[in-house]
Amino acid sequence: MSEAPGIGRIRVPPRARRGEVVEIRLLIQHPMENGFRRDTLGRAVAKNIIHRLVARYDGREILRAELGSGIAANPYFAFFTRATASGRIEIDWEDDAGVRGSVGAAIEVT
């Protein structure tokens, strides 16, 4: 789980057969400020987006994303991995303000 509830959520099937391709779903709370908006006083709102996101399965990279301001606020991703062994799927990310976040889930492979 994430360090603060509601920052991000991950869904992985808790159990899978060896070799099965499973879906990983991810939702993160983040405004993904594109840097083009202004607040009610007309001041520019600084760009702050999650620019990098990496998903690992027992340390091995499944997916690495470089993201731009064209990603919707509160980003959602779904992707796949092949279940090879019981272990953990961990996703971490970093935004332009240097704030990092992570979520993880266990998968049991039989």
Partner: peptide, 11 residues
């Protein structure tokens, strides 16, 4: 908008 790097582990 985005670039994703993946490989055989993605299945």
């Amino acid at each position: 908008v985005a670039s994703f790097q993946l490989g055989p582990l993605a299945g």
